[in-house]
Design a protein around this nucleic acid. Structure first.
Lengths: 225, 225
DNA sequence: GCCGAGTGTCACAGAGCCGTCACAGAGGAA
DNA sequence: TTCCTCTGTGACGGCTCTGTGACACTCGGC
């Protein structure tokens, strides 16, 4: 399920899109200002951002640029038809697509899926971490050339970690990305899965070099040198 | 020199692309409607088709599907940014790539060359997987030289898998590609067809080496060794 | 060293996924 | 019509996976 961050100051439009996009099968969090949006971005790590151009405070273009300084995640700009804006400025600030308001949720949904699809295709199909090679299209993982038998959950976990190498992900974030739920009580769910994954991909599972524990936070996938 | 068929109803865009692509070193024939395009396709046998989605009469998706019924030649879809379409549908109707208008001839050229390169590698008229040989123009499959009697559905399934060797395809994707519908409840439709196909092409159907199960995802056609 | 919070580990039972099968309806040929 | 093949369905069983909770362990602060 795609996980979206919607940044839009107009209450009516924001609520409408939030509802509409949820019905189209997305999980949506929303912010009314650029500042709030950037904050939510860091906390929640969405898959894609839908970003209004005309915002109080820092505007959409600026938000876009700031995101692009550190992040490659896809951005769709929302612009009012009456805005006499230069599409080039928008695209140069790093947006992936443009949608003109008013927009039907299902239209926006189609654009979102298109952009996500493009992203999937553009992202390299394989990644390497030490002796581990992940082939995203074959959905296989090999260690020193040998095929590893990962279970679906282990694979999803590794894929999500590998999409953000070197970045610490909290248990909460992993839960959302891999299990698509929101609430982790104090179960050892994530830890247990990490343990099983380590058992398969680490040379010495008890002192892992790939999936590192970040105490007080969660886990991080490193490329050992 | 790549030989292209361009199907696009807008005169200005068609002429512009025709000229631009010629300058990039392609030979181009153009048609303004799907019907004309299909006629030209038969007469001229181009290497690749650039196909607009929004066409008067039969639309691009339908043209794409009709071509795919008999032909494996590469197709690039052209879609207007404002088109209310789901690009995923386009790729699943059998296209190899898509490009969003407006597009610079040199960008389109790059995509064309990429698709053709990909094509050279794997869309020859026959393909071999272990002892299985698929002849796409004769629509026959042989195992150790012996003709196999595949049913139409089994054949389509094998063809779709073989167009993407080594790539895991979900049941959902296979359903769209082979059966052309959208909803898989929790029926065992895909599995049953895979089972029947395995019974014919695998040496030991109960431990398949060609059509591998990707647990939690779907299936993948491998070339053993 | 002691303590508490955070993390690693494990076994187990239930859930989920997949292979398999029989069957019935559709469709085509004679 | 009858016969035959093909195809989709749903039930079933087996096996794998996975979440849980208990317990052990580690780390860092005091």
């Amino acid at each position: 399920m795609p996980f979206l961050l919607l940044i839009e100051d107009d209450d009516a439009i924001r609520t409408g899109l939030e509802l509409g996009l949820s019905r189209q099968g997305h999980r949506v969090v929303a912010a009314a200002t650029g500042e709030d949006g950037l904050k939510l971005l860091k906390e929640q790590r969405p898959d894609l951002i839908v970003l209004d151009v005309m915002l109080p405070g820092i505007d959409g273009f600026e938000v876009c640029r700031r995101i692009r300084r550190t992040d490659q995640l896809p951005i769709i700009l929302l612009t009012a038809r009456s805005d006499d804006i230069d599409v080039v400025v928008g695209l140069e600030s790093g947006a992936d697509d443009y949608v003109i308001k008013p927009v039907q949720p299902r239209v926006l949904d189609a654009r979102i899926r298109a952009v996500l699809r493009r992203g999937e295709r553009d992202s390299t199909d394989s990644a390497a971490f030490g002796s581990i090679v992940i082939d995203r299209s074959a959905m296989t993982v090999t260690k020193d050339g040998q095929d590893l038998q990962l279970t679906p959950t282990e694979l999803r976990l590794l894929l999500e970690l590998s999409r953000r190498p070197g970045q610490a992900l909290s248990r909460q974030q992993l839960l959302r990305l891999v299990w698509e739920h929101d609430y982790l009580g104090d179960s050892r769910l994530v830890d247990a899965c990490v343990q099983r994954l380590r058992a398969k991909i680490e040379d010495v599972p008890s002192s892992p070099t790939l999936i590192r524990t970040v105490r007080g936070v969660g886990y991080r996938l490193d490329t050992p040198q």
